[in-house]
């Protein structure tokens, strides 16, 4: 029983149950989300643990982490604020929005606030083009959308996060 199995025994069983016995490998993506829950990124240890659970090599698990953008092999801010600046949103002022937001936070795109609270990133279309500007907030625990945003609304949201963290 490795670290991950000890911690999430039941959840892992529930995940494995979704896929055919001999197709365990299919569980790698949900297990990676599980592994990312606390740390917000995938540690080398959890890659090994997942490999062991699914009878894969750590390399096979790692390439999944590398291919998909919602998995991280490096720690980031506790909250990843991901602003869509793809074409439809850009046509509705998303780029200015992002620029101003970063200005106010005193960081550049891709950077993390000094207190390690938020990392601001720009991402491709989030399927909310009619409610631009919008961003999603990703933490280890999950993902939520914030639509029809203004720089003000975004900043006050970040404030509430700050308070919550204190």
């Amino acid at each position: 029983m490795n670290h991950l199995e000890e911690k999430y025994a039941d959840e892992i069983q529930a995940i494995l149950a979704k896929y055919p016995e001999e197709q365990k490998r299919a569980a790698v993506m949900p297990l990676l989300y599980l592994a990312q829950r606390e740390t917000g990124y995938i540690t080398r240890q959890s890659m090994n643990d997942i490999a062991q659970i699914l009878e894969l090599t750590p390399t096979e698990v790692a390439s999944i982490v590398g291919f998909y953008t919602l998995y991280y092999d490096q720690p980031g801010g506790k909250y990843r604020i991901q602003v869509c600046t793809d074409l439809p949103c850009a046509l509705r002022g998303a780029e200015e929005f992002l620029e101003k937001l970063c200005e106010n936070l005193g960081i550049r795109v891709g950077e993390t606030t000094p207190d390690g609270l938020v990392t601001v990133e720009k991402v491709m279309c989030l399927a909310g083009c009619d409610k631009a500007p919008l961003f999603q907030v990703q933490t280890g625990a999950g993902l939520e959308y914030h639509e029809n945003q203004t720089v003000e609304s975004a900043l006050s949201y970040i404030d509430t996060l700050r308070k919550r963290e204190r």
Partner: peptide
């Protein structure tokens, strides 16, 4: 295996 995707694909070993 491959790490990353697209133009950034690289061969890695773990």
């Amino acid at each position: 295996g491959f790490y990353q995707r697209g133009r950034s694909l690289e061969i890695v070993t773990y």
